[in-house]
């Protein structure tokens, strides 16, 4: 009997300087041993590089921005599903996940599966809920507060010391050393991502990330820890190496078993000089460096697909340490007709 062939929609085709995970996820799906795949790119912008990567993305459709509301998204996905008969969608932007979680019953009714955290899990790990999350699950997190107005700063600084990290609700973070820098960062971030803006204690140290997959019943299906080796000015890992830090493996097991996490995720941690790990962020989706997990023996997107489609999945038990990923940029030459087609018809 041959392998099944699935049609899978994937978002975050923005393989740019601060890349989305869509392209590495598609690479992983194309390399899956247990199934063949037709990949459907779901894009927001005509210049997302993945739109033009025809060896990886079989067809792309524009979808509406989350700010347009879930009705428009459902309407568009219904249309796409009529053309493509999607088996699964893997959404990868923090800002769109809420809409997809909300639409899960409707999408299921169309025959489209998702494998996402519940709305409660999604909310609980929001950046502005991190202190409560740390307390509830006994995980060390940096002190942080959410503010809605810039004039709350003076009051807030009674409990903080400079520098502090200013973070957007979904993306963006700046380390600020003074009130002036804070006001600039607050205005920039709140105008882009809205409020609250999160003010977090600055922890100095080496940055570590963990990616993994929870089955929604408390079991760890996959876990790969990585240490960032090269960090861009946007704080993104440009190079990293798989490691065997036992504490990170135990922390991930604890995170999955206690929250019963469903889906892929990324934990961001900083190890201070005293050797203590602080959990600084929980991203409710696979990271842009997910391809390292495939490189060390854990095809997480493949396992996620099989879980979503009800296939039997064995938990991974090992991975190779000392494997590195090094990201690079690549210029494609694209005919104007392609850009014209995706821009005018929303399909390519």
């Amino acid at each position: 009997m041959g392998k099944p062939k699935y049609t899978i929609g994937v978002t975050a085709l923005n393989a740019i300087d601060s890349p989305g995970p869509g392209i590495p996820i598609i690479r992983a799906l194309k390399q899956a041993a247990s199934f063949d795949v037709r990949t459907i790119g779901l894009s927001y912008e005509s210049l997302e590089p993945g739109v033009y990567m025809h060896d990886l993305v079989d067809k792309t459709y524009h979808i509406p921005y989350p700010s347009s509301g879930i009705d428009f998204l459902l309407e568009r996905l219904t249309y796409i599903n009529k053309q493509e008969k999607l088996d699964l969608i893997i959404p990868n932007f923090d800002a769109e996940l809420f809409s997809f979680i909300k639409l899960e019953p409707e999408l299921n009714a169309l025959g489209i599966k998702l494998f996402l955290p519940s709305q409660e899990q999604f909310e609980e790990r929001q950046k502005f809920n991190l202190p409560e999350f740390g307390e509830k699950y006994d995980i060390l997190v940096p002190k942080s507060e959410s503010i809605f107005q810039v004039n709350k700063l003076r009051e807030l600084m009674k409990d903080f010391e400079w520098p502090v990290v200013v973070k957007g609700k979904f993306y963006d973070a700046s380390i600020v050393y003074s009130e002036n820098q804070f006001v600039t960062a607050f205005n920039k971030i709140s105008s882009k991502w809205g409020t609250p803006v999160i003010v977090q204690e600055f922890i100095q140290g080496a940055e570590f990330n963990v990616t993994g997959l929870g089955d929604g019943k408390g079991n760890t299906i996959a876990v790969v820890p990585m240490r960032k080796q090269y960090i861009t000015d946007k704080g993104k890992a440009w190079g990293g190496i798989s490691i065997a830090e036992q504490y990170l493996l135990e922390l991930t097991d604890k995170f999955i078993s206690q929250t019963k996490w469903r889906g892929g995720f990324e934990l961001e941690l900083i190890k201070n000089k005293a050797g203590k790990f602080y959990l600084v962020e929980i991203n409710p989706r696979m990271p842009a460096w997910i391809y390292l997990a495939i490189g060390v023996g854990q095809n997480i997107p493949e396992a996620l697909t099989n879980l979503a489609l009800g296939n039997k999945v064995e938990a991974f038990t090992k991975y190779k340490t000392g494997k590195m990923f090094i990201r690079y940029s690549w210029d494609m030459i694209v005919d104007l007709e392609e850009f014209e087609k995706i821009s005018t018809t929303g399909e390519l």
Binding site: A206, F208, M226, R227, Q229, I243, A244, E245, Q246, G322
Partner: peptide, 18 residues
């Protein structure tokens, strides 16, 4: 025991990534 040393003198600590 898990610290790896290559023939060229490259030492890798798989716990910390150093």
């Amino acid at each position: 025991q898990d610290v790896a040393v290559s023939d060229s003198g490259f030492v890798f600590n798989p716990t910390t990534g150093d």
